[in-house]
Design a protein around this nucleic acid. Structure first.
Length: 429
DNA sequence: TCTGGGGTCCTAGGACCC
DNA sequence: TCTGGGGTCCTAGGACCC
């Protein structure tokens, strides 16, 4: 029995929003549609999204902004701070539209989803072009679609779709797969990162086709289980599972780098409280509770003596109640010694060992009444914040000054999530 | 001067037990 | 006095992803 699946295997499509953050900005600001554009990470630190024109100027993904600023200024590149409320909302719209076009899909990231292709190989191209047209019309985001029998091959197809004027690439026939893999360097494959590609290139394994031919045992020994999965997927055997599973056992975190040194220890306490409040609200949104909490403080990793401190605690019982979690985080903070870090550059919390709220065991005696009060309070807070914005109500622990707030000097308006920042339609003239 | 944030999964090694 | 080996669980850290 051959390990090569027939051309009739079920097909996946990877739908990927092109230069997603830049595309979101362009939906609401037509002036930047044909000029080079970049979007920066939090704190205006790194370049995390680039228009095609910006890519042509040689600006790399993830590059520190300050280092490229001279070129950006001289070439007139438009720069945006990141506007996550906008991107999150545009992502929801895109996913809703995609979901109406497939019987099943898995959201993989803010700008990517794997769709089950509901038609056979012969009609796949027409279907994919239809999906692309529909999202462009209804949401305004241009997509690339790569269609193949495994997710890893979809990624390969998706890369070549980005270079195709129709934005679609179907990768099905064995000959086509072979030549596509020959044209794909190992370092470009999904699942092969910097370390593994360095190793593989050292071994003379330069492209996807060469990797696909490697011996299974050798791959297992040198690239680990994940590497073996990648190789199987290149051969057309689906191995990468989607995670349908809800929050159980996962984690939620919030962290920030600080633009400037924190003015005093109370600012750090407030920042930590804010991180907890954000993560706890994400928890409740997903009907989950956390059983563990990590706190970490680090200095800048780009200075000489990088140092970090971490602390962990298990909670007496799973919780998503913001005050309880802030209390736990503050106790951890007291157990650390921030003075030992010359300067805290970044801090964050991670809520771990999540359990579904509905599966937590009932408490004894009067405890359930207390639990009900906590739940009612959090529901009210969540409703108010949803309606009136996150600033409308908060715990006192978070403080009002936000002195640690990150820098965002070039943020576009929150067109889709704030009544005061809706786009205005003006009559011409 | 200025370098993001949020995840998942795997592995190696130590502790502990029988 | 000599002194094995296998299993499990936990954790930290690394590698990967967008």
């Amino acid at each position: 029995m051959s390990s090569t699946p027939s051309d009739a295997s079920p097909l996946f499509a990877l739908a990927d929003g092109n230069n997603f953050y830049v595309s979101c900005e362009r939906v609401f600001e037509p002036k930047v549609r044909d000029v080079p554009v970049v979007v920066l990470s939090n704190n205006d630190g790194c370049i995390v999204s680039r228009s095609n024109e910006a890519k042509k100027l040689g600006i790399p993904m993830g590059a520190p902004f300050y280092r490229w600023r001279p070129l950006i200024v001289s070439k007139g590149v438009r720069v945006f701070s990141s506007n996550y409320p906008l991107y999150g909302e545009m992502s929801l719209r895109m996913m809703d539209t995609l979901f109406s076009l497939t019987p099943h899909m898995e959201v993989y990231s803010i700008d990517e989803a794997f769709l089950d292709v509901p038609v056979g190989p012969a009609e796949a191209e027409g279907w994919a072009e239809g999906v692309r047209r529909r999202v462009l019309r209804d949401v305004g985001i241009p997509l690339s679609l790569g269609v193949a029998s495994t997710k890893t091959l979809c990624k390969v197809a998706g890369r070549s779709a980005k270079r195709d004027s129709r934005g679609v690439r179907i990768l099905i026939g064995q000959e086509e797969i072979r030549s596509a893999l020959e044209a794909t360097g190992v370092e470009e494959l999904w699942g092969i990162g910097r370390q593994l590609s360095k190793f593989l290139i050292g071994q003379g394994i330069l492209n996807g086709e060469k990797l696909r031919e490697c011996d299974d045992r050798w791959v297992r020994a040198h690239l680990g289980l994940a590497g073996l999965r990648t190789v199987m997927e290149l051969r057309g055997i689906p191995c990468v599972q989607g995670e349908e599973a809800p929050m159980e056992g996962r984690s939620v975190s919030t962290s920030r780098s600080f633009a400037d040194p924190l003015p005093d220890p109370s600012a750090l306490r407030e920042a930590v409280a804010c991180f907890v409040a954000t993560a706890a609200s994400k928890l409740r949104e997903n009907g989950a509770m956390a059983s563990g909490l990590h706190l970490f403080l680090t200095t800048s990793p780009f200075r000489g003596d990088y140092r970090s401190q971490t602390a962990f605690c298990s909670l007496a019982r799973p919780s998503s109640y913001t005050p309880t979690l802030i209390g736990a985080a503050w106790r951890l903070l007291e157990s650390l010694n921030p003075e030992n870090l010359s300067q805290v550059k970044k801090a964050g919390i991670i809520l771990t060992d999540l359990v579904e709220e509905s599966k937590t065991p009932p408490r004894l005696f009067g405890m359930n009444a207390a639990l009900e009060r906590e739940r009612g309070l959090m529901e009210a807070v969540d409703r108010i914040q949803k309606r009136w914005g996150g600033q409308a109500i908060q715990t006192a622990a978070e403080g009002r000054s936000r002195e640690w707030l990150t820098r965002q000097s070039r943020r576009s308006p929150r067109y889709t999530t704030d009544w005061n920042e809706l786009p205005l339609v003006k009559a011409k003239g």
